[in-house]
């Protein structure tokens, strides 16, 4: 474990500003969603949304946008939220490659520390950052509901909120692992970041297409987004062990690949 704690501390210190800004943004977004939902609830806006919503959309989203509960929880599945969290995961996970590119690795790895320490450091920072970011969303949701929810509204069940947050966190970790594996094989941080970003976009579209197009459905299983289905969870389905296992497996396998490649490669 020699060198792990100083490296984790160093990495977190360097990211504290970014992490604080992201968490603040996510908190503001959750509060905004609760305030907007309160407004719709008080003005009867949800009835209008329900009337206007196309049939396929209503089925797919479990009328998510047409109820106070669904609208509040939309904050956990909004593409922008997923985008920011995945971007954070990519930024953290490409750190070892960034160290190679900037030559900081020469100062770091000329010391008697294992190469796996650099990878373990990144995994720990990734988990901590994900917990902080998603934890901020949870705090904002519970705090916002307590302070801002109208008396007439039926708030979402805590179990559902926590399940959504846990599933979202696992999705972020899976993307962090994938980014780390790609970065371990790459020579440039920008290349690794762009490749992971493109892959995330492509698999997001693939998963989306799989929901409406039967021919694509089997292939969409390769997408990590396939294992984050917030709409059915809002509809009452508990956190799926299959989804948890799939995302955890993606995280573990990609982290293991990253570790093996990083140990053998030239730095």
């Amino acid at each position: 474990m020699s060198g792990l704690l100083p490296l984790v501390g160093h990495s977190l210190r360097r990211r504290r500003g970014l992490l604080a800004a992201l968490s603040l943004m996510l908190i503001v977004f959750q509060i905004f969603m609760i305030l907007t939902a309160r407004n719709y609830e008080q003005t009867g806006g949800f009835r209008q949304i329900a009337a206007l919503m196309p049939q396929f959309m209503a089925q797919w989203t479990n009328m998510m946008g047409a109820s106070f509960t669904g609208f509040v929880l939309f904050g956990y599945s909004h593409p922008l939220v997923q985008l920011f969290l995945v971007a954070m995961a990519i930024s953290i996970s490409t750190e070892p490659l960034g160290e190679i590119e900037t030559k900081f690795v020469d100062l770091m790895m000329a010391r008697p520390i294992r190469r796996t320490t650099a990878i373990n450091r990144t995994l720990i920072v990734l988990v901590v950052a994900t917990v902080i970011a998603v934890g901020s969303m949870l705090v904002a949701t519970f705090g916002g509901l307590r302070l801002l929810a109208p008396a007439t509204a039926r708030p979402p069940q805590p179990r559902v909120i926590v399940s959504l947050a846990a599933n979202l966190a696992l999705l972020v970790l899976a993307w962090g692992g994938i980014a780390l594996a790609i970065a371990s094989c790459a020579r440039r941080r920008a290349t690794a970041g762009a490749a992971t970003g493109f892959l995330a976009f492509a698999t997001f579209v693939l998963d989306y297409a799989g929901k409406f197009w039967e021919a694509v459905k089997p292939i969409s299983r390769i997408s990590p987004f396939h294992y984050f289905d917030p709409f059915t969870m809002i509809g009452g389905r508990p956190l799926s062990t299959t989804d948890v296992a799939a995302l955890a497996m993606m995280f573990a396998v990609s982290a293991a690949i990253a570790g093996v490649v990083y140990v053998w490669r030239d730095l």
Binding site: R14, E99, T102, K103, F104, V105, D106, L107, A110
Partner: peptide
């Protein structure tokens, strides 16, 4: 004790 030719510093 190693001093690289190119110092990568944060």
């Amino acid at each position: 004790g190693y001093m690289p030719g190119e110092l990568g510093l944060y």
